[in-house]
Design a protein around this nucleic acid. Structure first.
Lengths: 328, 328
DNA sequence: ATCTTGACTGAAAACGATTGCAATCATGAC
DNA sequence: GTCATGATTGCAATCGTTTTCAGTCAAGAT
């Protein structure tokens, strides 16, 4: 039914080895190469990648494991990873874990069965803590969330610094009662919280914070409750783009003016943030570059398996918009 | 180095065939199955999927080819496809074509080399027109954009009807000078335009339209020009979520009131559309269901290769918000 | 006791490529 | 003319599974 390399060899009047070499790297005379190409065209031959991978022991596959591709941060990263991968002639297997430990374990096992070349992974805190890369059999680059220091390759944002950037900005704009909303499953939330607390401390201010599950709905609900408190903040640091959606919905529902009654500054310069309300002040993460860098680190690790784990820390850029206008 | 099925067999004191059967479907006595499972655990065996695929001739892989995963419509569809696939024990290969014909051809060839089980594909108009599914060797389900009638399995929105829904709504709200902004590369844009024109004709109104490349920037620029025209519309039908972003930016730049000076109604109930300006009136596509249905159709086609091509047409839901309030 | 039957089990042949090794061939040196 | 050399080429082994086919064995039918 389907045409094999043997058929091409027959059609070209050469051996299968020659066809393989003509299609790949091996030394082949021009005349035979031409014959082979003609035979490939004539027969409509398509190499069987499973067979090639089995024999060559190179899967040319990288795994990308994120919590949810619908999170624009991961969407952008995934696009960067895929661009880089296809440029290198590799394919990408994408997995969504929903921050679920079982799914993380499941997909890591799948990666082993695929004999992937490497994996780019945004793990939960728990998995990052217990992850033993050497036992896995392929290199791993963590993104967005770093594990225990010095154990893994990683490319992350300087989360503490970025959070401090937001705090300093809000303080400079005249806000004093600054609250924070952070995710409770990843190291990212914890780091941003730490930077948030440290920065407020420097200013001699309190640092009230709430921790929520990683979804817009959870953020909306948490903030809805908070806004009913007597001591509600007059400015808010929001730990990611999903939370920003929830925050804005809660604010809309409570009919609060932004920034008049509640200033907002958050993470992720998602497409819509310049359009919501007065425009949102945000930290822009170099999303595409994060993906590109992760891919590059993976390749370097493959070239040099022995080198010490490296952590690339990228810095966020503060984009100021109406939601943090000076306090009136 | 890596442990093979042969090593497991040795450790368990059985033949490789028995190990294979114990791990798969074959009939194996309970006692041996237990032994095999113990040996698998002891050795840390992971089956090699390339070898399995080569021998069994089942790749358990489906291809998903879209224009850009960063388009939230495709993001949502991809999540649905992946959920369904992993539930069935299949892998997904995701490709971004950027509406580029060469990339489309390239990735279709890649799918052949992967010997994929099937492909879910959002093609450009040109590729859809020339696509010969039978020559490909695997079933294809088109999404979002249908090809020539009766030739392919497809799951699409009733685009003309949805566009008409928007037009009827705007007319009912009192708008008369209604313009349209449509994409120029896909059949989707064309169908929505057709529904737009037909609906306006029913109302005895003109149907001024602009066609632009599929990006927010292109929409922004086109509308920027249009808004300077003397005969600019007082309401706008916008053909997709990306364009909505561009439209809102142009409107903001021109400092027009929405809906006072320009009412807006568009496609795609993206996460942010309830938060921008007065809230955007949109057609909500059943995005997750589109992905799920495409996957289901693929499975049915595999069960029954001979059946005639089917086109599933889903209907959009009108979500009315502030951007189309009755004309004052 | 013998024969059937059915349920397991193992040996060995695929699956479709790549690659180590040996053979071939033309070329230029002697 | 012979031989060494280097560049191609082909043969056959191999990658790690699944699956066919032919046993083996115990239990029940006769």
């Amino acid at each position: 039914m389907t045409v094999r390399i043997k058929d091409v060899a027959q059609a070209a009047g050469v051996s299968v080895a020659t066809v393989s070499r003509a299609l790949g790297e091996g030394p082949v005379s021009d005349s035979l190469r031409k014959k082979v190409e003609a035979a490939v065209a004539a027969t409509g031959y398509r190499p069987n990648l499973s067979a090639r991978r089995l024999r060559s022991q190179h899967s040319q596959t990288i795994g990308l494991i994120v919590s949810d591709i619908r999170n624009p941060f991961f969407t952008a990263v995934s696009r960067a990873v895929e661009d880089a991968a296809y440029q290198l002639g590799m394919r990408v297997i994408l997995c969504n874990t929903d921050e679920n430990l079982d799914k993380e374990a499941l997909y890591l096992r799948l990666m082993q069965e695929e004999r992937v070349t490497g994996v780019i992974f945004a793990p939960t805190r728990e998995t990052a803590a217990t992850l033993d890369v050497d036992a896995l059999g392929f290199p791993v680059v963590l993104i967005d969330r770093a594990g225990p220091p010095g154990r893994h390759d990683a490319v992350v944002l300087d989360n503490a610094e970025a959070a401090a950037l937001l705090v300093d900005h809000l303080v400079a704009q005249g806000y004093r009662r600054i609250g924070g909303l952070f995710g409770n499953t990843s190291t990212t939330g914890a780091e941003r919280h730490a930077g948030f607390v440290a920065a407020l401390q420097r200013h001699g201010l309190e640092a009230p914070a709430r921790f929520v599950a990683p979804s817009a709905a959870a953020a909306e609900q948490a903030l809805g409750l908070w806004l009913r408190d007597a001591d509600r903040p007059d400015a808010l640091v929001v730990s990611n783009g999903l939370f920003l959606l929830g925050v804005l919905r809660a604010v809309k529902h409570a009919e609060l003016a932004v920034p008049g009654e509640l200033a907002i500054a958050g993470f992720d310069n998602d497409d819509w943030t310049d359009l919501a309300g007065p425009g949102l002040t945000v930290i822009e993460q170099p999303v595409y570059e994060i993906g590109r860098t992760a891919m590059a680190m993976l390749m370097e690790r493959l070239d040099n398996p022995a080198q010490l784990p490296r952590k690339v820390v990228l810095t966020g850029r503060l984009v100021t918009r109406g939601s943090s206008r000076p306090r009136g």
